[in-house]
């Protein structure tokens, strides 16, 4: 994979230029009250913040155009799946790495 050529992106209004932080705002009415849940996510792999092109929907499920036909129940599920499918895109594990932290829902 290291010999592969990065093509760049021949489009003008894509989302690749956005940062690594993703902000989600979920709004709904409940019991006559207007509720807004705002959250900002940042995914780091081996300590490096990565742009994984995901969004968190109103139902809390997570989608990414890297796996465009799937809605994940959690961001953890999505990140694991993307790493499994693109292991070479994230580089080698660091010496004395961070280990596997379970239980952080998306």
């Amino acid at each position: 994979m290291t010999d592969d050529t990065h093509l760049g992106l021949p489009v003008g209004d894509h989302d690749m230029s956005h940062g690594t932080q993703v902000t989600s705002v979920r709004s709904f009415d409940h019991g006559g009250k207007a509720v807004e849940i705002a959250a900002t996510y940042e995914v780091k792999v081996n300590g490096v913040a990565r742009q994984l092109h995901f969004s968190v929907g109103q139902d809390g499920k997570v989608t990414s155009h890297l796996r465009p036909y799937v809605a994940y129940d959690s961001l953890v599920d999505m990140v694991k799946d993307i790493i499994d499918h693109y292991p070479d895109d994230f580089g080698p594990a660091p010496q004395g790495g961070h280990g596997d932290h379970h239980g952080h829902g998306g």
Binding site: L7, L9, P10, V11, D13, H14, D15, M16, H18, T23, S24, V25, R26, H53, F54, S55, V56, G57, Q58, T63, S64, H65, P68
Partner: peptide, 18 residues
Amino acid sequence: LWHAATMMTMTPPGNSAG
């Protein structure tokens, strides 16, 4: 390439609905 680029073109940019 066209399909992949379309997939990456969020409408509007940055929308949370994907």
